[in-house]
Amino acid sequence: MGPIMIVEDEEAIARVLAAYVRKAGFECLICKDGSQALASFEAARPVLVLLDVMLPGKDGWEVLRGIREKSACPVIMLTARGEVGDRIRGLNEGADDYIAKPFEPEEVVARIQAVLRRPPQSLVDPDQIVFGSLRIDLQSRSVYLNGAVLSVTPRDLSLLLFLAENPNRLFEREQLIEKVWGIDYEGSDRAVDLSVKRLRSLLLHWPAEEGEIRTLRGTGYQLYANTSR
């Protein structure tokens, strides 16, 4: 197994993270800037990257794009607390998770272990999306909860499918309108809110520990799914 790569320019934070990562049984590699991280990535073959957004030289966004050009290696972004835009951008550009600073090292280790428990994409049935007791059959465009079929309108189903195909990614209303309703849609973005309300009603008995549709401070929505289950 390769190491956990920690890309963090603050030496004290990197040192604490490394100590906890090693205590959890992982090897560890510390990079102090983005250029060093990209230069070391292929040779190190890390199993996961902890990537700070604010880095000297190449920032975290450049590093994330560089990694995604060549690898599906899991990446957890480290962002400043309250920087919601950073979280949206990181997840939309391919990060697997994010953690806001300041953080507890134990939480970081728990997040690492959760991400690494996720099944490889090749093991997922391409015709189904399954999050615990929620199952979406892509071929028949049917939704099942605890084995029972749900009656979903075509538009609501299209929204649910889009969110489910992009789990744990945050989307603003305007993005959802464009992706689901289409760029020619001339109605209010209130349609997104109403669609989400109907979906939440249908998914009322979907256990929260398996997943839920979350609101991002009135800006947009995310289908949170516990993909480590």
Results as ranks from 00 to 15, higher is better:
1 M>S: 14
1 M>Y: 07
1 M>W: 05
1 M>L: 10
3 P>S: 14
4 I>G: 03
6 I>S: 04
6 I>W: 10
8 E>R: 06
10 E>T: 06
13 I>L: 11
15 R>E: 13
17 L>M: 14
18 A>E: 12
19 A>M: 11
19 A>K: 12
20 Y>K: 14
20 Y>T: 01
21 V>G: 02
22 R>H: 08
23 K>N: 12
25 G>R: 12
28 C>Q: 11
30 I>A: 07
32 K>L: 10
33 D>Y: 07
33 D>N: 15
33 D>K: 13
35 S>K: 15
38 L>M: 11
38 L>V: 05
38 L>W: 04
41 F>Q: 11
42 E>Y: 01
43 A>Y: 05
43 A>G: 06
43 A>P: 00
46 P>W: 01
48 L>M: 12
48 L>N: 09
51 L>H: 07
51 L>N: 07
53 V>Q: 14
54 M>E: 13
55 L>S: 02
56 P>G: 08
59 D>I: 01
61 W>A: 02
61 W>C: 03
62 E>H: 04
63 V>S: 02
66 G>P: 01
68 R>E: 03
71 S>V: 00
75 V>W: 03
75 V>F: 01
76 I>V: 12
76 I>N: 02
78 L>Y: 01
79 T>Q: 03
80 A>K: 11
83 E>H: 11
83 E>F: 00
85 G>H: 07
85 G>D: 13
87 R>K: 15
88 I>R: 13
90 G>R: 03
91 L>A: 04
93 E>L: 14
94 G>H: 05
95 A>I: 02
98 Y>K: 12
98 Y>A: 04
101 K>S: 09
102 P>N: 08
103 F>I: 02
104 E>V: 07
104 E>A: 12
106 E>R: 15
108 V>M: 14
108 V>H: 10
109 V>G: 08
112 I>Y: 04
113 Q>L: 13
113 Q>G: 08
119 P>V: 08
122 S>P: 00
123 L>H: 05
124 V>P: 00
124 V>A: 11
127 D>K: 13
130 V>M: 02
130 V>A: 07
132 G>D: 04
134 L>R: 06
136 I>N: 05
136 I>M: 10
140 S>Y: 00
143 V>C: 10
144 Y>M: 10
145 L>R: 09
146 N>W: 09
147 G>D: 09
148 A>M: 11
148 A>E: 14
149 V>A: 15
152 V>L: 11
153 T>P: 01
157 L>M: 13
163 L>Y: 09
164 A>E: 12
164 A>G: 04
166 N>Y: 06
167 P>G: 06
167 P>M: 10
167 P>L: 10
171 F>N: 12
174 E>K: 14
176 L>W: 01
177 I>N: 09
177 I>E: 11
179 K>H: 10
186 E>H: 05
187 G>Y: 02
188 S>Y: 01
188 S>H: 09
190 R>F: 03
190 R>T: 05
192 V>W: 01
195 S>Q: 08
196 V>I: 14
196 V>T: 05
197 K>N: 11
198 R>K: 13
198 R>Q: 05
199 L>T: 03
202 L>K: 03
203 L>M: 05
203 L>T: 06
204 L>S: 15
204 L>K: 15
205 H>S: 15
206 W>H: 08
208 A>N: 13
209 E>T: 10
213 I>R: 05
216 L>S: 15
217 R>C: 04
217 R>Y: 03
219 T>A: 14
220 G>C: 06
222 Q>W: 07
222 Q>S: 13
224 Y>Q: 14
226 N>L: 07
227 T>F: 01
228 S>L: 06
229 R>K: 15
